[in-house]
Every structure is written in C-alpha cells, then in structure tokens.
C-alpha cells in the first residue's frame, strides 16, 4: 500500500465534505476517482496530497503519517497537480518545469546536473522541448496542461496525484494527456491517482476505479466491476446502458437520460 486514507474526515471550516473514509492506493497502479460534482473527490485528492489537513483520521504514505513527515521529503516522493493552477504572466515553459525541481534544491545546490537532466527529460516526455522558450500564456490549453504535468514530472516522484488533468481540453487533447499518463505508468511504473469527469476515458485508462457520492466511497475495484448500470443509477442518478468499448473492451457508458423515478 503506497498511499492510504484511514478514516479521514475532511472539510472546510464548519462544512464537512467527506466523513470517515477509507481508501488504499496500491503501488504501480493507476487509480481514478469518479463521482458527481461536489461529491468530495477533489477534496479527497487534496488530502492525499497533504494540501488539506484532515479534521479526523490520517493519511499514510508508505505506512507513515504524511503530516508528520517533513513536507520537503514528501515532495521528493509525491507530486500533486491541483485543478486549474495559475502561473505568473510571462513565465516560460522551461521556467515552469524547472520549478518542479524545487524540493531538490538548497541554497548551496541551486541548479545541479541532476536538475538539468530531469527538466530535459520531463520536457522530452511531454513533447514540449520545442516550446520550452514560449511563455505559458501563449500556449493552447492542451499544451499548457502538458507543461504543468511536465513540471510535476520534473519533480521526479514515482507517485503522482492529478486533479482533473483533462479539464478544458478537447477530446483529442484529453486522450493525448491520458496516453501520457499511461506511458508514465508503463515506462517507469509510477503510481498515479487522478480525478476524472469522463467515465469512458476513466474506465479505459484506470487499473482501478473509485466511485464516490456524498463523501463516501460507493464502489472500488476493476472498471468492469465498478462501472455497472446499477452503480450509474445510484451514484450519478443516470439511466444508462453499459456496453463493451469496441476499441479497448473496457466498459462504455451510453446515457439514456436522468434517472427515472419509479
């Protein structure tokens, strides 16, 4: 178990979003969290990435409490990419990616050859080497998203948390980003946890699906077992047919309409 939430209760101020939730992430898997808007999936991801301190329970990274570990040490193992991050105007792709090396740098070791190699690798992997000098705000949405992922890659962690990495992207770019994720997983057997909205893409690119509703995990497991017509009704209030994806064989959701009330 790489990363584990044990009985966590999460919220902002008075408002509790997630209550007493358990979730484990196995090493070397791609885990995708799905659920309707406001079900607490992003909140859960933030807690797993120690961006949000649980009000109750604990998050364990490699068996140790994440909030008791030095945050810089965590950053060497675990990378988080929040939803829709913003960069200062004029920041170039190379500068952004270079900032991913932050946890490895100290005042006496500001730019080592390791840093340089990691940034080059990250740019190559995301196919951004040719755009390295361009300011981020001049790129297309897909390129920008790849740049942020590239920053997370430069961080050199084998555990990556991505919050809706495909938001604002057209279908082609969504697939492009997810293929990148799959490649990262296959080539370096990274452990990846992400939140996705598109159920069909989630089913295709995940080893394990976690379905959430109202702050609770309703189902978790192989996409074939999780993405059923019953679950869609229960979790998304959606009447749908689930057929095998003609390309990948994974479950494919064909919506019929909002859940019909008996």
């Amino acid at each position: 178990m790489r990363l584990q939430a044990a009985g966590v209760t999460l919220g902002y101020g008075e408002r509790t979003v997630v209550e007493n939730l358990d979730l484990g992430v196995h090493s070397g898997t791609v885990t995708t969290i799905i659920g309707p808007n406001g079900c607490g999936k992003s909140t859960l991801l933030r807690a797993l990435g120690r961006l949000l301190k649980p009000q109750g329970g604990e998050v364990l990274l490699d068996g140790k409490r994440i909030d008791r570990m030095p945050t810089r040490e965590v950053a060497k193992v675990l990378g988080v990419l929040p939803q829709a991050p913003t960069a200062p105007e004029g920041l170039t792709v190379a500068d952004l990616v270079a900032r991913g090396r932050h946890p490895h740098q100290t005042w006496y070791r500001q730019w080592s050859s390791d840093d340089e190699a990691a940034v080059g690798r990250a740019l190559d992997m995301t196919g951004l080497a040719d755009l390295a000098e361009r300011p981020l705000d001049e790129l297309s949405g897909g390129q920008r998203q790849r740049a942020w992922i590239s920053m997370a890659l430069a961080q050199g962690t084998d555990l990556l948390l991505l919050d809706e990495p495909t938001t604002f992207l057209d279908l082609a770019h969504q697939v492009e980003v997810l293929e990148l994720v799959r490649q990262l997983h296959r080539e370096a057997s990274r452990t990846i946890v992400m939140v996705l909205h598109d159920l069909n893409l989630a089913a295709r690119y995940a080893d394990r699906l976690v379905a959430m509703r109202e702050g609770q995990v309703v189902a978790a497991g192989d996409p074939h077992d999780v993405l059923t017509e019953d679950l869609l009704r229960e979790v998304f209030d959606l009447d749908a047919k689930v057929i095998p994806d003609p390309v990948a064989g994974t479950p494919l959701v064909v919506p019929i309409g909002p859940r019909s009330r008996p």
């Binding site: 988080v80 929040p82 913003t86 946890p103």
Partner: peptide, 15 residues
Amino acid sequence: NALSLGEDVARGLGQ
C-alpha cells in the same frame, strides 16, 4: 518562486 505558482502547487512542491 514556488508561491507564485499558487499555494496548492507550492505546498505540493514541499514549501
């Protein structure tokens, strides 16, 4: 520099 990417990213980078 880390902070200028937003608080969440900065925290993620171990700041």
